[in-house]
Design a protein around this nucleic acid. Sequence first.
DNA 1: TCTAAATTTAGAGTCACTCTAACTTTAGAG
DNA 2: CTCTAAAGTTAGAGTGACTCTAAATTTAGA
Lengths: 209, 209
Amino acid sequence: MEEPQGLRARKKQRTRAALIDAAYRLFDSRGYSDTTVNQIAAAAEVSPATFFNHFASKEDVIFADGGVLLEEISQRLESLAAGRNPVEALADAVRATTADAGTRAPGGELEAIRIRLITTEPALQAPTLRRTFDSQHGIAAALHRAYAATLGHREAEVLVGAVVGAIFAAVHSASRAGEPLDRALDDTLDILTRTWRPAARRGTRESAR
Amino acid sequence: MEEPQGLRARKKQRTRAALIDAAYRLFDSRGYSDTTVNQIAAAAEVSPATFFNHFASKEDVIFADGGVLLEEISQRLESLAAGRNPVEALADAVRATTADAGTRAPGGELEAIRIRLITTEPALQAPTLRRTFDSQHGIAAALHRAYAATLGHREAEVLVGAVVGAIFAAVHSASRAGEPLDRALDDTLDILTRTWRPAARRGTRESAR
DNA sequence: TCTAAATTTAGAGTCACTCTAACTTTAGAG
DNA sequence: CTCTAAAGTTAGAGTGACTCTAAATTTAGA
């Protein structure tokens, strides 16, 4: 897992790690908006220019090593598809992924800060939505692959969009109400699996020409 | 509809209209990102400071008179609730609202530009998502009101989130594929109403205490 | 040891956005 | 009609994210 790269690459990773660490530390104490990129660079003891050498934007530092969840869900989908309807499989994949994302050792400390940040900082709401939205295509593609026989391309997109949209809505409203997020997630997945029916298909082709 | 306000208010509306007009014109020709607020102000023949006097941000010009759709959908929900399940009512409300939003006379010219901008300009994706997401609460509240007897608070949030998320996913994928958006919307609403079942409720209270 | 590529850096510049203090115009009282 | 208060507009300075260019430093590999 740890390729013994050259000295060059190792140094680069070290400054990158220093930047991430400094950023999370500052975001945690002063808040996201009140932390400046210059402060992060100073705390990491590099020049401000170096920050943008590693991250495309200030937010990027927070989502830097994200996108892993997307791949995890997509992968799980394939093994969970058997015998379940798409929504059940999706729900299980989400459950499984979030379950061990919470207990994952490396970066677990930062993970807690991240969740707090993206659920509370207003300035991060839009970026979070955007990135999640972008990752939907990948999941939809995986779902379509796993249910190629019964699930059209558009139906897969719609389904994933619905599940993700529902989760976001529930998590956000729970967050505002001060309720625990994991419970909101469970409730949501329950509701979705309970109220979804595998589709009385009208035609077999839905991207008719 | 047009309160004959004082000269003061009329002048203010005129500069506001000039700003909106200039902004759309410039966005349309040079693109959103390549248009600067200074250029908009110059085109409207006001100072740059005045722009921010009317709009909180550059994007704000585009969404300025939006938010109307939200209220429309919420209102329609109440009259459409009878005899339908929640998803059917929601779908009908969306259909009805988008139907006459397309044919609404005033600003119809700008409306076309707006749709093109928010579906193609990458810089507007995040703001669009954010605003839509924010408006969900209002719709969810209206839905909960219309189905107070059978639909819990959380279920309403989940449902609206699912419908909105599905629509967004479909519209976005259609937009990337170059397919007509209205057709994607119709397909999506069809899929949703066909695959949703009114819920075999487990308990009557889902925000158990 | 020398050269080429990768990292970092300084520095100047753009743009969105904020804040403050002034300036102009309208509204309404007397 | 006049005078004052408020609303609207403006100039100007400043902050912070982000870009670009060119130079400095460091490592890789011949």
